[in-house]
Amino acid sequence: MATGQNIVEFHGVSKRYPGSGDALDRLDFKLGHGEMAFLTGHSGAGKSTFLKLIALIERPTRGNIIVNGVNLSQLKRHHIPAYRLGLGIIFQHYNLLYDRSVFDNVALPLVIRGLRHQDIARRVRAALDTVNLLKKERAEPITLSGGEQQRVAIARAIVCKPFLLLADEPTGNLDPDLSLDIMNLFRRLNEVGVSTLIASHNVALIRRMNRRIIHIEEGKVMSDAIPGPVPA
């Protein structure tokens, strides 16, 4: 079932929450290695559930999900931490730890991996450089603007060189200019080969990215296409 060219495969995946209808309904989906795609749809359409299933925050009610050649339904609970180390996850609310500096926030995934101090410093600075925040490494996250905080979160997500970036409404709290900055940052990361899956309801913004857009409605894929160039 696992193939070499896809980083994510959904095979007939359904997710039903107790007491409500299907969040996802027999969904098939493939994301190729190095591909970037946007998930869109109304809130409650199943975008978040989609990402949560990949991050193993939720388990599907039915169907199989294969990520990077690993069938998630066969992944035991105690293997989840090691699996998540390969993902870079970005949230709408940044989810930074506000009791430590920007540097320590970005360093956390490396600390969890048990890397040596010197390697951690080198890689944290490389990641902060990528998101243009090298000068803020000693700052407290709370003193940064929303856009900067989201860039710290992105640095934290890419510092471990993940095989897949997942972002859930990464620009949901940002104004249009900052949102465009962040999306362009994702696109640059994708251009150097990071497979990326972004959930966003900001259709106008994501249409400008010239990447695949998967439209989900009531747990089903309504459309899946790369939009043509948008007149600016």
């Binding site: 980083i7 990077n68 998540r84 390969g86 990641a127 095989f163 150097v192």
Partner: peptide, 9 residues
């Protein structure tokens, strides 16, 4: 940032 071949996590 340089990418390496994706590896099993």
């Amino acid at each position: 940032m340089s990418r390496q071949t994706p590896q099993p996590a």
